[in-house]
């Protein structure tokens, strides 16, 4: 499954003076900002870019997929429920073939 950022979501990374890496995500116009820290930032960003999160992380970190798959799935389920990610339509094979 692929994901994308919903049309009503604003987000930003922690400011330069902040000592900890965090992501702040907010559903507009008046949702309470959600804070992601550490590896959750990577998972959200990869998912938001439409990447296969587990495949990308296991490749980059050189670890077996089953060590992170359950945690990633749990995070993505929560992110969908909170509305800070949404499912992306699968790529159109005909469109892909024609380009």
């Amino acid at each position: 499954m692929r994901y994308r950022i919903p049309a009503d979501v604003a987000w930003q990374e922690s400011p330069p003076e902040h000592h900890r890496r965090e992501l702040y995500i907010c559903r507009l116009p008046d949702g309470r900002p959600i804070v992601l820290a550490d590896s959750a930032c990577d998972i959200w960003l990869l998912a938001a870019m439409g990447e296969d999160v587990v495949a990308t992380l296991t490749s980059q970190l050189d670890i077996p997929a089953d060590t992170i798959a359950a945690d990633v799935a749990s995070f993505l389920t929560s992110a969908l429920a909170l509305g800070i990610l949404e499912e992306a339509a699968p790529p159109d094979p005909e469109l892909g073939a024609s380009t």
Partner: peptide, 14 residues
């Protein structure tokens, strides 16, 4: 996912 304090500069951009 938590609801910790959000830095002021981040709140201003939101």
């Amino acid at each position: 996912m938590t609801e910790r304090d959000v830095p002021l500069s981040v709140r201003v951009e939101f």
